[in-house]
């Protein structure tokens, strides 16, 4: 099926399931996506009435990981009496993975949510499209057949969807959330098995340490430290982030080279075995920094050393939460 038709089916699936959950009072609210007000965007939305389900949409610009709205840093959705609301959450694969991992980290009670599983067909790489268009304003972006059509004042350009989706989406093997009894509705994956050869980062991996360092330096130098990456990340839920600590100040707060690297690299350390590969950080970055290679490298380390893929099984302990005498440790001592 072409992407355009898949989108229509996914959208219908979302509306049908959301309407049913609200009508049957299985949930109080639904968190989903709605049409953005500017091209290349979408907006998260919370609805609480079945008649509003037509506001829910699916297109290939629904890049925010909605699990972000259920983690503690942002207050839990409550009703006027202060009681927790039962939430239905529109979940592409990476949203489902984030929810599962958050429950593993005891940040979320899966029993209090309904996962509305959808078969995600990929997110458009907004930055790549913007790079191609250059200093011209995009008025409209749509998917027609298997192509992305971008229109502006005096131009119309066609991009093949499979080339212009996020790099993470190209290698994603968990397009729908892993299935959980009594929690999931819609399309989910039963016991997903992840086989990943990480060939997409093979070239990066083959670089020398110096070359990697040059890449990372050049990648991060435009960072303004607005923390959009952190705030869009469902795994960044600390009440006080390490860079915000000010008694004592542990890390420099400026946009000088070393301070930027320390922020991003320490954040990366915290993401090992936790990143679900949703790409929300890169999509959110206003400066166009794409953290894809860093995140995939983390995923690779967790997979190769601990045979762990984040957010697949709510019963398996992630490597950073478990200790095994057989755990590999040579990388701490000898490797680059």
């Amino acid at each position: 099926m072409v992407i355009e038709n898949e989108n229509k089916e996914i959208e219908q699936l979302i509306r049908d399931l959301a309407g049913k959950l609200l009508e049957e009072k299985q949930v109080d609210v639904i968190i989903g996506y709605t049409e953005g007000t500017v091209p290349l965007s979408s907006s998260p939305i919370v609805i609480d009435k079945a008649e509003d389900v037509d506001k829910l949409i699916w297109n290939n610009l629904c890049y925010i990981n909605l699990a972000k709205y259920l983690v503690p840093r942002i207050p839990t959705l409550m009703n006027e009496e202060g009681q927790k609301l039962k939430v239905g959450i529109v979940s592409k694969g990476c949203v489902g993975r984030a929810l599962i991992h958050l429950s593993v980290e005891h940040q979320l009670d899966l029993e209090s949510i309904k996962i509305i599983g959808i078969p995600c067909n990929g997110i458009i790489n907004r930055k790549k499209i913007e790079d191609e268009i250059g200093e011209r304003e995009i008025f409209d972006i749509s998917v027609s057949g298997d192509n992305i059509i971008v229109k502006g004042r005096d131009f119309e350009k066609v991009f093949p969807f499979n080339e212009y989706m996020n790099e993470l989406c190209k290698v994603c093997q968990v397009k729908s959330p892993p299935f959980l009894e009594d929690i999931c509705v819609g399309e989910c994956l039963e016991n997903p098995v992840i086989e990943d050869d990480f060939s997409d980062i093979a070239e990066f991996d083959s670089k020398t340490t110096e070359e990697k360092w040059e890449y990372i330096k050049s990648l991060l130098e435009t960072c303004t430290r607005c923390y959009a990456c952190r705030e869009a990340c469902p795994m960044c839920y600390c009440n006080l982030c390490f860079v915000d600590q000010n008694q004592p100040v542990w890390f420099g707060k400026t946009t000088g080279y070393s301070d930027i690297f320390v922020f991003h690299l320490v954040r990366a350390m915290h993401m090992a075995g936790r990143c679900v590969g949703c790409g929300a950080c890169s999509s959110a970055c206003p400066m166009g920094i794409d953290l894809n290679l860093i995140n995939r490298s983390l995923e690779k380390i967790a997979k190769e050393r601990f045979n762990f893929t984040t957010g697949i099984d709510p019963r398996s302990l992630p490597p950073m939460m478990a200790y095994d005498i057989e755990d590999k440790e040579e990388f701490m001592m000898e490797e680059d």
Partner: peptide
């Protein structure tokens, strides 16, 4: 504010925002 994730994009890239912090190194 329901969907705001609390990043600083709007204010850091705003030409009129003036808030600053002062730190000693």
């Amino acid at each position: 504010s329901e969907t705001c994730i609390g990043c600083g994009t709007c204010s850091f890239l705003c030409p009129t925002c003036t808030c600053f912090d002062v730190i000693d190194e």
